[in-house]
Design a protein around this nucleic acid. Structure first.
Lengths: 198, 198, 198, 198
DNA sequence: CATGAATGAGTCTTCATTCAT
DNA sequence: GATGAATGAAGACTCATTCAT
């Protein structure tokens, strides 16, 4: 008595999600080139060849994760932008959330770091990264400029501040998950926000 | 007219330097795993097998670059610490210099990013990275605490500030050299220093 | 209303036949090594794993087809041998029929071509091919010699003529089904029979 | 003291030729899909990875052989066409030569059989095969028609005769090299030429 | 020293076969 | 019986490293 197509479909979804979750951790720590398919299979607790039932090759697993991470980032920012409060409060919440991701080692920001950290990333991933980064960056600039108009944010070119924030977040992600000999505490959101104080 | 042993020695030194310089660029952009020996040879303009006259294997080229980068960072900080002026002025000069490195894409900070960005780094490199990072971090904390005693730096735990600075620098390195779709300007030193203003 | 065992049996026979028919087409065009089990399942319109209800493995599907083809060839020749008319008329009818098979792209002769075209055919298939080819060849030689005794066939060693006929038939099969850029007409039986005219 | 580029070049040519020669035998007997890279390396007496110094992948080795075989066939026909004698004599010499190839198991005609015998041949090879087959076929038709005008060849549509000849040659190649249980003698050129006698 | 050919271990990928449902 | 997910052995391909010249 075979399963219904729906059952198969659902099962497949679940497995696929589990695989992605496991793969995120592995890629985040090792990068694309240094990650082996066996690593992915082992991390997901499935057999070697089964990965290929869900993704055609290693790169496409990575690509999926990158797009996911990008979408998550955009969603985070957009949600706060549309939320209540002044621009400053929106920025505050956005920073708090994204830093929380980083602190919790959700691996999502690290995937973007890994994607950036190698030129030998497949071209489609490159393009997606460019496209969405631009979009994300623009939204952030708009938020900052709104805050500046309201006198809540220091009058430094918004693009400069935006880039600084993104760099800091990515840098923190990098120093959070990977060999961190130092017992340096994760910075408070307010500390990071000092960059924006008037 | 054969060369003297000294000439040979010098030639070898020069080649080795040239190779390291070329390798730094390549590793900075691709990472250890994704860089091939042919890439190194091609970048240095020497033949394939000749790389092995200077280094026993790929990892040791990378390891050399990592240690170099670490030493450079420590030297930079130490020099300013021993230089004239108040702690604030020392911090200011240090930031200015290290940001200049990043902006100029000297690749030196990026090598550290690459070293951090993969768990699959050879153990000796790992250890060197840990050791020196600790040392570097301690010096930075001392500098910050000195500035705080002098009332020149905001009273936030020095370790937190130190980590934030290092993260920001590495994040900027990451977004400087690699595909950067955004035309975001490189931040001014003073903007970064806002993190430390009382 | 459950089916009777007979009905089940019949259903199974039918499926098996359909599978063989589909497999014949696929193997004829791709050969044993290049044909995948998915190809067979897809061609037969059944599910992936179901093939294994009818055959233990891929090779045995192929082996079955080869034996079938051999038996068909022998049956064809034997039937004409036992039919009415002179040896020449028997040869004539045999050629007409086998060429008809080839022209109609029944795939039966092509299976034999595929079986011949690769050394990496399972040993049992090899042996069957040898055994039956010998048998078939002998019968054909006998027919030719009978025709020669009757003065109806040219006096060239019968084995030579037999081999030539078989080669021609297989060659025609090869050029009939596969990419045939040329619009060359399929030769008439009489043209082929010129080989045998006194 | 390294070799000069010329020496390297020559060495490479020679090795490449040797590899092609060995590969021809293997592909001729096994076909593309059933041939393993280890087979090629072993047949050529070189190491596994070295094959990839000469060809980017398995298919391109095969493709090279197919083009070679096609060119050889065309060259053979063209040479005789431009040679002395009546059309009949030209045809006679062409048949003699190509049959000699087949008899000697030069493998060249078999490569074409193998190329025809599988749909799963890379597209470029497919196209080359089509293109050249057309060209070859046309020349053969012209030769036959010339012979017919001179009353030396039977008045059957030239295209039909041409196809028959090619099929016969390929069929003979197939039955020559591969498991041939029968001790059937290779047919004399004159026997094949009976197809064309008026 | 310098060169690039040669080797083969390590990975990716495919796919025949098995198996739980 | 029927389905397609799961497994893993086999084979293609890459590339670090060695070596003859």
């Amino acid at each position: 008595m075979p399963r219904t197509p729906q059952q198969y479909q659902q099962l497949k979804e679940e497995r696929r999600s589990a695989l992605l979750k496991a793969a995120r951790e592995v890629f985040a720590r090792r990068g694309l080139a240094a990650t082996k398919m066996t690593d992915l299979a082992a991390a997901a607790g499935i057999s070697y060849g089964l990965v290929y039932h869900y993704f055609p090759d290693k790169e496409s697993v990575f690509a999926t994760l990158v797009e996911e991470a990008i979408q998550d980032g955009i969603r985070l920012l957009t949600a706060e932008r549309q939320g209540p409060g002044t621009p400053w409060e929106q920025l505050q919440r956005f920073c708090a959330q994204i830093l929380e991701h980083v602190r919790e080692e959700t691996s999502i920001p690290l995937i973007l770091v890994q994607a950036r950290a190698s030129e030998s990333i497949p071209a489609p991933v490159q393009r997606a990264l460019e496209r969405y980064t631009t979009q994300f960056f623009q939204q952030l600039v708009e938020l900052i400029e709104a805050g500046q108009s309201a006198g809540q944010i220091v009058k430094i070119p918004a693009a400069e501040l935006a880039r600084l924030l993104l760099s800091t977040v990515q840098g923190l992600a990098l120093t959070q998950v990977l060999p961190r000999p130092d017992d340096a505490p994760f910075p408070a959101t307010d500390t990071v926000l000092r960059l924006f104080r008037p």
